[in-house]
């Protein structure tokens, strides 16, 4: 290089320091080897001690999340099924209840009618038997009075006989007694 052609040698020195590999004599084969070995060794060590385990745990987490989502989906479907089943059950129960209530009402109505009818019949029977009793008692009383009248008549006759009364008085007495007895009848 023709240095004298350029003015100011300091500038040249400065520029010279800024070129590639300032201060070094060309490419250093040793540096290339060291760089390669260092980088590849670092990569291998990191893979074994850091990235490998870390990737493992990240993979594990991914799987966990996936399985949790699946589980949740399954649970959701199951609960929807259960809900549908429950609704069906409730509807069925309501229908059954209405049916039972209806039949119970019908039965109660029928029973009421039956009881009223039975009570009416009983009342009629009781009334009839009471009337019959009354009639019988009346007959009995009349019979008793008749017997009494006869005995009274006998008594009156015996009194008359014992008193020695006249024919006229006698007949009058008998007539009177008979009349009395007839009234009583």
């Amino acid at each position: 290089m023709n240095l004298q052609a350029l003015e100011g040698s300091e500038t040249i020195v400065f520029l010279d320091n800024l070129v590639l590999g300032a201060g070094a004599t060309g490419m250093n084969l040793g540096d290339i080897l060291v760089t390669l070995v260092t980088f590849l060794l670092l990569m291998a060590l990191l893979k074994k001690f850091a990235w490998g385990p870390l990737m493992g745990i990240m993979q594990q987490r991914e799987e966990l999340v996936a399985s949790e989502i699946e589980e949740a989906e399954k649970n959701r479907k199951e609960s929807a099924n259960l809900l549908a089943q429950n609704e069906k059950l409730v509807k069925e129960t309501q229908a059954n209840m209405a049916e039972i209530l209806d039949s119970a009402k019908k039965q109660a109505n029928a029973q009421r009618e039956e009881i009223i009818a039975a009570a009416n019949a009983e009342a009629a029977r009781l009334k009839e038997s009471a009337q019959r009793d009354i009639a019988a008692e009346r007959e009995k009383a009349i019979e008793a009075i008749r017997e009494e009248v006869v005995s009274l008549s006998v008594l009156a006759a015996s009194k008359v006989l014992s008193k020695e009364i006249s024919e006229a008085d006698n007949s009058a007495l008998i007539k009177e007694t008979i009349a009395k007895a007839g009234e009583l009848k």
Binding site: N28, G30, T35, F39, L46, A50
Partner: peptide, 22 residues
């Protein structure tokens, strides 16, 4: 084989720091 000892040292320090962090 020519080695720039400074580069060699700094490469190893860098690698060591990265490895320690990780």
């Amino acid at each position: 084989l020519t080695f720039n000892l400074s580069t060699v040292m700094m490469l190893i320090i860098s690698a060591a720091i990265v490895f320690l962090i990780a």
